[in-house]
C-alpha cells in the first residue's frame, strides 16, 4: 500500500545506554492510551499524523498495537494492521517509536518481533513497511530480522526523502 506521508518513526540513533528495565508489553485496550501513544510518536515526527490516522489503526486492529510500559510510563509503541493485498494477507507496520532514554536495548526489535508473531498467528503471509532511506537505524533493525528492500519509492515523504518498502515473507 502506498500512502503518501506514512512514516515509520524509527530513530534509534542516540547512544545513551540503559540497563534493560522491567518492561511490560501490553496490547492496546482503549482511548485512554491514545495520549501516551501520540506523545511518544510525535516526538520523532516532522509531519504530524491526525488523530484520525491513529484511530484508523487502533480501532480496527487493536491487537496489532503494542505498548512497551514501565509501570505507567509508555516507552515504546508499535502500530500495525493486516489486510488482503492481491489475494495475500499482508501485515503492515505503520509506526514504531521508542523513547530516546530507552534506545539501544532492543525494545524496538522486541515490539516488531511480537507484532510479527501476532501477524503469523493470524495467518499473514508477509509483512511490509516503509522507512526513510536515510534512517540507517531502522533499516538495520528490520534487515537484521530478515526484511528485504522490495522497492524504492522516490520522494515518498513530504520532506522529499525517498523510502524503501521493506518486506518480510513469513
Amino acid at each position: 500500500m502506498e500512502v503518501a506521508g506514512a512514516v515509520t518513526a524509527q530513530k534509534e540513533t542516540t547512544t545513551s545506554e540503559v540497563n534493560a528495565p522491567n518492561i511490560d508489553f501490553v496490547t492496546y485496550t482503549g482511548e485512554h492510551q491514545l495520549p501516551l501513544i501520540v506523545g511518544l510518536i510525535e516526538k520523532d515526527l516532522s509531519e504530524p499524523y491526525s488523530v484520525y490516522t491513529y484511530r484508523y489503526f487502533l480501532n480496527s486492529w487493536p491487537h496489532l498495537c503494542l505498548l512497551a510500559m514501565i509501570e505507567d510510563k509508555c516507552i515504546g509503541v508499535i502500530i500495525s494492521k493486516s489486510d488482503y493485498h492481491r489475494g495475500i494477507l499482508r501485515g503492515y507496520i505503520a509506526m514504531l517509536a521508542v523513547d530516546k532514554t530507552y534506545r539501544k536495548v532492543k525494545i524496538g526489535t522486541k515490539l516488531v518481533l511480537k507484532t510479527i508473531e501476532e501477524m503469523k498467528s493470524h495467518h499473514c503471509e508477509e509483512v511490509v513497511l516503509e522507512t526513510e532511506i536515510t534512517n540507517k537505524a531502522a533499516l538495520g533493525l528490520y534487515e537484521n530480522l530478515g526484511f528485504l528492500r522490495d522497492k524504492r519509492l522516490n520522494r515518498y515523504y513530504m520532506n522529499g526523502v525517498d523510502a524503501f518498502r521493506l518486506k518480510l515473507m513469513l
Partner: peptide
Amino acid sequence: LFEAMSAIEIGD
C-alpha cells in the same frame, strides 16, 4: 487509510 491520513485537525 488515505482518507484518515488526509483529514486535518481544525485548529492545529
